[in-house]
Each structure stands twice: as C-alpha cells, then as structure tokens.
Amino acid sequence: MGMLEIQKLSKIYNGKVSTRALNNIDLTIEQGEFVGIMGASGSGKTTLLNMVSTIDTPSSGKILINNQNPHQMKKNQLAQFRRRQLGFVFQDFNLLDTLTIAENIVLPLTLEKKSLKEMDEKLKAVAEKLGIVEILNKRTYEVSGGQRQRAAIARATIHSPVLLLADEPTGALDSKSSRNVMEMMEKINQTDGTTMMLVTHDPLAASYCHRVVFIKDGELYNEIHRGQNRQEFFQEIIDMLSFLGGNAHELSAVRV
C-alpha cells in the first residue's frame, strides 16, 4: 500500500463546454518516494495536485493519503487533515508578510496549540537543517527569494507531514536559488523520509526526483526513473519533454 494512492481519478469541469481535465489517472507514491509530475501547460498537472492537496474534489475516482480518503471528510475535518498530514510549498512562497520568518514557520504548530517548548525545539531543528537561522527574526520582504522559499519549506515540514506537496517551488527563483532549494528538499526527503510530490515545468527541479511522471491531455503518458546519475536523468527528462511536443530548445540545458 503506497503513501498516496490515486485510483481511476477523473475531473470534469462543467461549463458551457465540459472539459475533461483529468482522465482515469492511476498513480501510487510509496512511502519516502520523491515523485515529480511534468507536463505541458494545460495538461492537467495542477488539477491533479489540487485534488491531492484536497482543495479540489474529483468527479470520479478515489484518492487515499496514508489510507485515508480526504474527500469523504467534512470541511473542518479536512482543514485539520491538511494541516496535520500535508505540507505545502508554493511558487510564490505564500508567506504572510505581517509575520516574521519564525512566526511564519511555527504557524501550523500554533494553530494546533502546541507547547512553546515544542515549537521552539522544532523551529530550531528545521531552521538549522535549512540554513535559515540568521533570518528567523527578519520579515519576509527583507530576505531573498531563495531564503523565502526555504522558509516556506521549513513551514511545510515543521509538523512532519506524511506528504509534502510542492507546486513549482522553483518557478520564481533564479537558477542558483533553485538548485539550493531543490537540494534542501532532497535532503529532507533523505533524512526525514518525507514523501514528496512535486509539480514542475523545470527539468532541473524534476531531476532531483526519484521518478518523474508525465501527463498529457489529462492522461498519464509515461514515467521515467532516475538512475545513479542526475545529469543523465536531466537529459532524459528534456528528451521526454521534447518528445511530448514541447519545444526542447525552450528548455535550456545550460542550467545544469
């Protein structure tokens, strides 16, 4: 049984013209696995992430996270599920600019009314791991994008979620910061064994995954596994993308 089980998942958006965003998706992510989802714009990868994030409901099919079906929960229960079981990393960081970095990071724990001691301990541990100890008392607009994203990762992992969901975490970063952020995610995956699902356009970010799943027109198209060499994996991803109909020259190889 995987940490995340997606069974025959479909999503249809009803409008004047019904659109089938996802069609019959089956996907299993094992405990401790780091999986990337790739696909062209409009392929349905964000829709898939939203379903897994429990912020959108499927039209048919089933999603099981840690053997629980979040879509059968009541709204308040679901919110609690999200904040205990899931961690989120977004493209635009989504840090609250009225709070300091430290306050942003402990927010999930304060909502759970954890003790101050526990919060301080966890904050210290996660900040050290991500190398953001010096900026803890700064405000979000006083630090760089890369630091902000690391803070966001800290917030997403401080409560030890069973599943970390990342939506284009490197989308707003330069290549150096991107690499740094991905290395941090890889580190967390390795040391804490956190299961991760990453949705991205960026082949560089995807090359840090164990496995990359490609989606085309709402259906699973293919998946490739990483071998020993990340450089090789990166090349494979680029080849796959160009094969998928993307334009290979858009994705510069220089960044590796």
Partner: peptide, 15 residues
C-alpha cells in the same frame, strides 16, 4: 489572499 493561503495550509472555516 491572506485567508486563501491560510486555508490551503489547513485553516478551517470556523477558525
């Protein structure tokens, strides 16, 4: 925007 972000993180409607 503020509450949308918090909601994704698991802030319930009642909260």
């Amino acid at each position: 925007r503020y509450y949308h972000e918090l909601s994704k993180m698991g802030l319930s409607l009642n909260e």
